[in-house]
Amino acid sequence: MPPASLPTAEPRAGRHAALALAGLALLAGASLFVGAAPLSASALLADGEGARMLMLSRLPRTLACLLTGAAMAIAGLVMQMLARNRFVEPSTVGSAQGAALGLLAVTLVWPAAGLAAKMLAASLASLAGTAAFLAMVRRLPVTQPLLVPLAGLAWGAILGAAATFIAWETDLMQFLEIWLNGEFSGVVQGRYEILWLTGIFAAAAYLLADRFTIAGLGRDAAVGLGLRYERVLLLGLLIVAAVTALTVVTVGMIPFVGLVVPNLVRMGAGDNIRAALPLVALAGAGAVLAADLVGRLVIHPFEVPAATVFGVIGAGVFVWLIVTRRGHGA
């Protein structure tokens, strides 16, 4: 981070953040009043039924979208620093598929396991999947940045095929579908609160942001600057794995959030990770909420999963990023 860029970057980031907050508030307000059952402001005041629906279903759903989006965007940003590559995110490097494998394993071995045990298994498996990917990345030449996302996609496909095989043979395909295809229609009060835990990991990412920036310079430079590289790497991996596991267990994976959002934000706000992180979180929350809103509206009163909506839009943006950012390195 060149010091000269600081004075210009900070106020601009502040303006962006204010704009993003305003947009987010609008989206969240809309989200409270959109759904299969009609709900208007007047009905809300008139009887208890409307308020009950708001508290039981709409508010939890809106919060779940915001939390998931923010956490996944941050996880994507951390992943990009760790892999030193802009074109990776948890669902394209095997983190999500690893979490699903861990969940499958615990479901088969110990069907009565509680949520905590499932979370732990998913996190550990996700950690292993991501660590294996990073080990692979180290063997790739730094001069070929696009090989990294390619290897990640293949690794994710392999883990995904393994999960599909196990799930198919054990009649758990439906679960796998739910884990890997995020949607929010099932979110009601009492079924999403665990997502608040992602806040802890987001805060940790913020505290460690400068270290991730240094780690992003590569092992030799980071060690030379006095960073305990392996420890920072492990902490980053933990954040990515835990956020991924939390998302997969509660609402399911939403592809491309962690990839598209940080890239777009960094195009505007620059590469100061600590300054960009709140913006990335806000933009991620807004993007997922918007995708969910589109999913709720497009075939109203039926719904399209947010992951499907985001898959289409996110992939389109990704292709555009790849094709246009020629010569920008990775």
Binding site: L146, L150, L153, V312, A315, V319, R326
Partner: peptide
Amino acid sequence: QRMVLAGIVLGVMFRSL
């Protein structure tokens, strides 16, 4: 590489679509 990556993501987009 750029072509391969764009191609793969196009594939993902068609499947999502």
